[in-house]
């Protein structure tokens, strides 16, 4: 396995218990530092499992995951996760306090913490709403709070689990453009999960297509070399979309047929 990437999956396999079916088997993956990697696949193929293993919430049954050469053992602030939906926001904290929450447990002087929080609020476009509580925010704004919270930690790696999945289509495209812009301005490695091919082509440097589960692995890794900033539905965009769609449709059909 090549070791010069920022993130390396080395023959990673996972299942819940000794006799349950394998969820992923022998997953090999290398992501270079600063790359935007999108993992795409049919439902139930184990994308979220791969992210959970990378984040450190679960331990691989077989194989290893290395981040910058070191083995992943537990969750860390170098690999912050942006979750799908609003479950991970704290409803008793304002947006501002939620964003600052991530910095509470790391030794950081208070004024620097406040400065970072303010910068992140600006970056995601939440200025003016920072004193509102999550139940007063729309879905798109809540996801922006999560994103700001992750950005405030200044972690070199960002893990995003279908962050725009629960948001309506218009807000989704706005957030995608915003994320693309933020990533252009900073050199972070991003591990992004989605089942929306448009999102993948818009954001990714390379796209990994997973096979249908169980015991799935990577079917292919397709680099996307369209120069940024990307616009939806140019000819190159359409070509990449078609290529990915063909790969994915095969697996999606298999997933439909698979009775687990």
């Amino acid at each position: 396995m090549v070791w010069d990437g920022s993130i390396v999956f080395d023959k990673v396999s996972y299942r819940f218990e000794k006799d349950s079916p394998w969820i992923i088997k022998d997953l090999d993956l290398a992501i270079a530092e600063g790359g935007f990697f999108v993992l795409i696949g049919p439902s139930g193929c184990g994308k979220t499992t791969a992210l959970n293993l990378l984040a450190g919430f679960d331990k691989p049954t077989q194989g290893h995951i290395h981040v910058r050469g070191e083995s992943v053992v537990r969750p860390g602030i170098d690999r912050v996760v942006v979750f799908q939906g609003e479950d991970s926001l704290y409803p008793w904290l304002s947006a501002q306090d939620n964003i600052g929450f991530g910095l509470r447990f790391v030794r950081l002087p208070a004024d620097e913490r406040r400065a970072r929080v303010r910068d992140c609020i600006e970056m995601v476009g939440l200025a003016g709403h920072e004193h509102k509580y999550p139940d007063q925010l729309s879905g798109g704004m809540k996801q922006r709070v999560q994103l700001a919270r992750a950005l405030a930690c200044q972690s070199p790696i960002l893990l995003m689990d279908e962050p725009f999945g629960a948001v309506d289509a218009q807000t989704r495209s706005i957030l995608q453009d915003q994320l693309a812009r933020i990533c252009q301005e900073s050199r972070r490695t991003i591990f992004f999960i989605t089942h929306d091919i448009t999102e993948a082509v818009l954001l990714a440097d390379s796209v990994g297509v997973m096979r249908a589960g169980p015991a799935s692995g990577l079917k292919a890794v397709i680099p996307i070399s369209i120069p940024r900033p990307r616009h939806r539905w140019t000819r190159e965009f359409g070509q990449m979309y078609d290529q990915l769609h063909e790969l994915l449709a095969e697996e999606a059909l298999k997933a439909l047929v698979n009775v687990r």
Partner: peptide
């Protein structure tokens, strides 16, 4: 909620 907090160590 707990996982997010664990990310932040």
């Amino acid at each position: 909620r707990i996982r997010a907090a664990r990310c932040f160590e």
